[in-house]
Simulated scan of single mutants.
Amino acid sequence: MSNSDGPGGPDNPGGFYNTKDVCRLLGVCRGTLIKMVKAGLFKKPFKFYRRGHHWAKDYVHDWIRQAGR
């Protein structure tokens, strides 16, 4: 995980993954992740003020488990 992954880190609030981390965990590129969101295959991200898009860690791990990845 990136250095910004820790709780309360400057770029990633605790309990959330940023786009880069989600892509790495899913093994997909950013474009594929966007397509997955648009197709309804992956939940839309939260947008934190000036901190980009984030997904709840619990959701990401549950999705990975259910997808069998």
Rank of each mutant, 00 (worst) to 15 (best):
S2A: 06
N3L: 15
S4N: 10
S4P: 00
D5T: 09
G6L: 11
G6I: 10
G6Q: 13
P7R: 07
P7Y: 05
G8C: 09
G8F: 04
G9P: 00
G9Q: 06
P10V: 13
P10N: 11
D11A: 11
N12L: 10
P13I: 15
P13S: 08
P13N: 07
G14R: 15
G14C: 06
G15W: 12
G15S: 07
G15C: 10
F16E: 02
F16K: 06
F16W: 10
F16C: 04
N18M: 05
N18P: 10
T19Y: 06
K20V: 14
C23S: 03
C23G: 08
L25M: 12
L26N: 02
L26P: 01
L26G: 02
G27S: 12
G27W: 03
G27Y: 06
V28G: 07
V28P: 01
V28R: 05
V28S: 02
V28M: 02
C29R: 12
C29P: 00
C29I: 09
R30T: 12
R30W: 12
T32S: 14
T32A: 11
T32N: 07
L33T: 06
L33I: 11
L33H: 07
I34H: 11
I34M: 09
I34A: 07
K35C: 08
K35E: 04
K35I: 05
M36C: 06
M36F: 02
V37M: 14
K38S: 12
K38I: 09
A39H: 13
A39V: 07
G40V: 14
G40Y: 08
G40Q: 12
L41K: 15
L41A: 15
L41C: 12
L41H: 11
F42W: 06
F42D: 00
F42E: 00
K44H: 09
K44G: 04
K44F: 01
K44V: 05
F46S: 13
F46D: 14
K47Q: 15
F48V: 04
F48R: 13
F48G: 00
F48S: 03
Y49W: 07
R50F: 13
R51V: 05
G52K: 07
H53Y: 13
H53S: 11
H53E: 14
H53T: 05
H53V: 05
H54E: 02
H54M: 05
A56H: 13
A56P: 05
A56W: 09
K57A: 12
D58E: 15
D58P: 00
D58G: 11
Y59R: 05
Y59P: 07
Y59K: 02
V60F: 00
V60K: 02
H61L: 10
D62F: 01
D62Y: 03
D62V: 08
D62H: 03
W63I: 01
I64E: 03
I64D: 00
R65C: 03
Q66D: 09
Q66N: 09
Q66Y: 07
Q66A: 07
A67V: 01
A67W: 02
A67D: 08
G68T: 04
G68K: 11
R69D: 00
R69L: 09
R69C: 01
R69G: 00
